[in-house]
Design a protein around this nucleic acid. Structure first.
Length: 684
DNA sequence: GTCAACATAAACATCG
DNA sequence: CCGATGTTTATGTTGA
């Protein structure tokens, strides 16, 4: 899987034309893809190609490749996390909160999605960048911690030896003693150097991807980095530097928390009387080992075992095929007997579970806070479970809910990030939602659909997208729009748009032909993008009104969901404000990255109107969407085009301006437009 | 099952 | 002619 990683970088730059088509420009699909790709989706297709290309990739990796590689690793791990969690291994045990700071934000709903089925790509989609990073960091922190323990032990040992030697040396010739001391000291030194080196190394590796965020986000508070690949290795019982020793060390050094249950389920030999202590969850819940059916001894159930499924061993990193349970048991007892490796893996698993639990607790807490803030009944378990499993619709909406909620507490305008800030590494609403329900890489209209604040989203995860080869969960249209709106004069040439894409997203630094074609396609296709002849050529602008218009159909569905959701959560009274918030989130003040001036909830409402009102607009979406049309003027205002835009777009939209008044300065034109467009429209 | 939105691929046109 | 830019059509996927 990881093979998929580095590779595309290769194909990126050159627009791999296969010279088939008529003209050059569209060498799209690159060598491999072609039409078939569609089904699998871009990412899938990309992955496919990747692997193909990646195979050849030699040992060396470029930074970008390394980054990608690490991401893949992280995904792997994340997947494992979920996998494990889903397998019911949950054994509450809460450690000190050392790592709580880096608690991973894995949407509960995600965890419910039968992780086994998830591919790294999907994981990418499911976990928001911040989540991925968090995951990664969590592991890094873990590793670091373990390593430090290990090194510490080593040093202690050396010291001990040294002392012993010194004592013993009393009878020895001074010279000899001196030598020995020297040797030990050297050893010690080496040890330290090794440690430093190792840590450095890990850090460097880990930081490749973290750096960006560190510079700008809460992530920087996270512990030192550790190569994300370590964990898997640990699971596999190989590779991790200093691992063997580490095992024994960790046993004492690490704050092992776990439960008997876990232990039993892990190590066959009864001998395992884990020195594990029970902890309590943040919320005070004792982590009592709930005798889970699956955690009971494997001999129990004739046909099943928590570690056995689909004919293979589910031990982390094992996957050995076993024809039947008997064989599996045998395998379990031989391969996963009580030894250093197994215990280490077990510990890792415990950590995993702990993290997940911590996260769950946090999310619960947050939810409670939110609900409290919103004057709702706090102890409503539904919020969690409801959206999780059921229909895709609700689940996706849940995400929106979360996002909206995120900004709620602090005031509508608050960037979600800050809310979750220090502890929870960025939890972009749009992202989470987008990725989640987009399921496949190809589908990422979510953001659009649910109007996630792409701008804020981007602002928050700017660095991430910039460096991580992760496909942004936004539609091309929304991205293009964002690109255009980000500029002072709100107009961009095609090439500039390209540049924006590549500048903002690592993902778009590859497969250029494909996405460029898509960009062009989108520009042409969507009415919201208006081409304006400029002196130096043509520039593209955004007709915000038109853009918003596109959404009605989408949003029509949302309200329903909203209602469902709301009713389900007894959000009743909140309805209005909630929707307003929703709307708000849907209408990020895209302009400034700083966006969202806190506390101006009221100002947001209008937007809400728009969104809510939009659906009301029975316009045929676009086509001849005529009546209330008036786009041209609008952007013509905001856009400083040399030429009369009206002309250029005349054909497109003979729209008569309803809002001649938009003195739309480059500032917040949208608000204005919307307000005017749908004055006082209430969600109906 | 239908529909809308979207992604992707590709053919074709236009222009510098 | 070539490449960049635009337009349009076709097809497939997904969610409502």
């Amino acid at each position: 899987m990881m093979v998929e990683s580095a590779s595309e970088t290769i194909r990126s730059a050159p627009s791999g034309q296969n010279g088939v088509g008529s003209l050059s420009g569209q060498a799209d699909g690159g060598g491999g893809g072609s039409s078939g790709g569609g089904a699998a989706g871009p990412a899938a297709g990309g992955a496919g190609r990747d692997s193909a290309v990646g195979a050849d990739s030699n040992g060396e990796m470029s930074p970008a490749e390394l980054l990608h590689f690490q991401q893949q690793q992280a995904l792997q791990v994340a997947r494992q996390f979920l996998l494990q969690q889903a397998s019911g291994l949950s054994s509450p045990g809460n450690n000190d909160s050392k790592q709580s700071a880096s608690a991973v934000q894995v949407p509960v709903s995600v965890a419910m999605m039968s992780p086994q089925m998830l591919t790294p790509q999907q994981m990418q989609q499911i976990l928001s960048p911040p989540q991925l990073q968090a995951l990664l960091q969590q592991q890094q922190a873990l590793m670091i911690q373990q390593l430090q323990e290990y090194y510490k032990k080593q040093q202690e040992q050396l010291h001990l030896q040294l002392l012993t030697q010194q004592q013993a040396g009393k009878q020895q010739p001074k010279e000899a003693l001196g030598n020995k001391q020297l040797a030990f000291q050297q050893q010690l030194l080496q040890m330290q150097q090794l440690q430093q080196q190792h840590l450095l190394n890990l850090q460097r590796q880990g930081l490749v991807s973290l750096q960006p965020s560190q510079a700008s986000g809460p992530l920087q508070t996270l512990p030192q980095a550790v190569c994300p690949t370590d964990l898997p290795q640990l699971w596999k019982g190989e590779g991790a530097p200093g691992q063997p020793a580490e095992d024994s060390v960790k046993q004492e050094g690490l704050d092992l928390t776990g439960t008997a249950t876990t232990a039993t389920s892990f190590a066959a030999p009864p001998k395992v009387s884990p020195p594990l202590s029970h902890h309590t969850l943040p919320n005070g819940q004792p982590t009592v080992l709930t005798p889970r059916r699956d955690s009971s001894s494997h001999e129990e159930m004739p046909g099943s075992h928590p570690l056995y499924g689909h004919g293979e061993c589910k031990w982390p990193g094992c996957e050995t095929l076993c024809e039947d349970l008997g064989q599996f048991i045998k395998h379990l007892n031989t391969e996963h007997a009580l030894d250093d490796r197994s215990t280490a893996q077990c510990r890792v698993q415990m950590q995993v579970v702990q993290q997940l639990e911590i996260q769950l607790a946090k999310e619960s807490e947050r939810l409670q806070a939110m609900m409290t803030h919103l004057h709702m009944r706090p102890s409503e378990p539904k919020p969690f479970s409801q959206p999780l499993n059921p229909a895709p619709g609700s689940s996706s909406f849940f995400k929106v809910t979360v996002s909206a909620a995120d900004s709620f507490p602090d005031g509508l305008a608050h960037p979600p990030t800050s809310a979750a800030a220090p502890v929870t590494p960025l939890r972009p609403p749009g992202l989470g939602s987008a990725s989640l329900h987009s399921g496949g890489p190809a589908r990422r209209r979510s953001s659009d659909k649910f109007c996630s604040p792409i701008s804020s989203e981007l602002a928050q995860n700017h660095e991430f997208y910039k460096n991580a080869d992760v496909r942004p969960p936004f539609t091309y249209a929304s991205l293009i729009r964002q690109a255009i709106l980000e500029t002072p004069d709100r107009q961009l040439t095609l090439n500039e748009i390209y540049n924006w894409f590549t500048r903002m997203f690592a993902y778009f630094r590859r497969n250029t032909a494909t996405w460029k074609n898509a960009v062009r396609h989108n520009l042409s296709l969507h009415k919201c993008f208006v081409r304006v002849e400029n002196v130096k050529g043509a520039v593209w602008t955004v007709d915000e009104r038109e853009y918003q218009k596109r959404r009605p159909p989408k949003m029509t569905g949302s309200p329903t969901l909203v209602k469902n959701m709301i009713s389900g959560l007894s959000y009743g009274a909140l309805n209005a404000s909630y929707q307003a918030a929703l709307a708000e989130s849907s209408f990020p003040l895209l302009n400034s990255p700083g966006m969202l001036n806190p506390g101006s909830a009221s100002s947001l409402l209008p937007l809400g109107h728009d969104d809510a009102g939009a659906p009301v607009e029975p316009l045929p979406s676009n086509g001849s969407s005529s009546p209330p049309r008036l786009s041209p003027p609008q952007y013509s205002h905001q856009v400083q085009v040399k030429e009369e835009p009206a002309e250029a777009e005349e054909d497109r939209r003979p729209g008569p301006p309803l809002g001649p008044p938009n003195p739309s300065t480059v500032g917040p034109p949208e608000d204005r437009d919307l307000e005017e467009e749908l004055p006082g429209e209430e969600l109906s």
